[in-house]
Design a protein around this nucleic acid. Sequence first.
DNA 1: GTCTATAAAAAGATAGAC
DNA 2: GTCTATCTTTTTATAGAC
Lengths: 201, 201
Amino acid sequence: MSSSRKVKAAETEAALKEAARRLFVEQGFLKTKITDITKAAGRSTGSFYEHFASKDDLLVVLLLDMHGQAHDSLAGAHPREHDLTDRAQLRTHVAVTWQVMKDNFPVMVAMRDAAAAKGAGAAELWEQLVDDTSVLKGHLDYAREQGRELPGDSTLLAAAMGGLISTLAFALMSTDDPPYSDDEVVDTITDLLLRGLRGAG
Amino acid sequence: MSSSRKVKAAETEAALKEAARRLFVEQGFLKTKITDITKAAGRSTGSFYEHFASKDDLLVVLLLDMHGQAHDSLAGAHPREHDLTDRAQLRTHVAVTWQVMKDNFPVMVAMRDAAAAKGAGAAELWEQLVDDTSVLKGHLDYAREQGRELPGDSTLLAAAMGGLISTLAFALMSTDDPPYSDDEVVDTITDLLLRGLRGAG
DNA sequence: GTCTATAAAAAGATAGAC
DNA sequence: GTCTATCTTTTTATAGAC
């Protein structure tokens, strides 16, 4: 196995990406040095630059990988007629978001760290959040068109929901000994968003 | 003015802190170099180390300043008997949290960036979030003791609420041209948490 | 394509004059 | 206490042999 030059190159690139994903979770994107990645992958410093122009470039590649997966599992065709005030449908959205974040946790961590290093300002963060929650906003707009009363602007509400989920996802996704099960978290988020604190109406 | 040696030193320290707070918002904690701070404050590199041992030490000092303020304005005596299912009381909590974050935005930004640089893992983030929302958790526990039904574990719920508020605060606190007024955001968050998406019950 | 050795860049921290 | 000039450390990136 691993005979031809081309195959060996692909193996090296895969090994580097795998090592990077693991290290990003363990110690963060910024704290992970290129030499850490090459060492973990059993490769040399120089070899890294044969595959990636920089650490940021590696992150871009990982991001593209993620988008490929996400597209397959989720974005196929997503009608905006989903009713987020229906518990089952809301729960599905929460669960899918949760799962995507879980599957791509290394990339999410790295993106967050990279944003901090870049000095991303409030404006960029807001745009990112709005973009990430555009699907939710679409559903909320549809609900309002159907005569539903919502407690605020749909963009703001969608961002609030997304912020809640992503913060909890980051905080809770320790690899070992999670304090809550996925189902418990998804159910709690769903019910909080659905009924609010006043209890089942 | 600014005569004695002691006074001049205090002025320098204040100027460094002020410059740091401004730069942390403009370009983030990590991107802000010590020489940026000294330059902005009209001081020299060497002078910085007369007042702070490092950039991290400066952040600790700013954090202590913040805690001093927060203690005065908020923590005096906070009874846990507040009813978060009462709109007015919930709104007050949301508004106070929002205001504290707004007043200390430079420090919040710096803390977030520093955590990213340190490679803070999921476990640390979760502990931090639980700590920051312990007051909310107290109220929720009290509500449950009073026979209220809540949609999940109080620690998890409090963390979810805190995550929602802090994410929006970060995203929306651009210095210029805010897309929503403070009141609008606080009202929306309050109503979302209070009633959920099902509308006024 | 991969390796070792080394250069280059960036930022933090210090020494010593004033 | 503050300044200028310099040293050290850290990490990225490249050169050249294999």
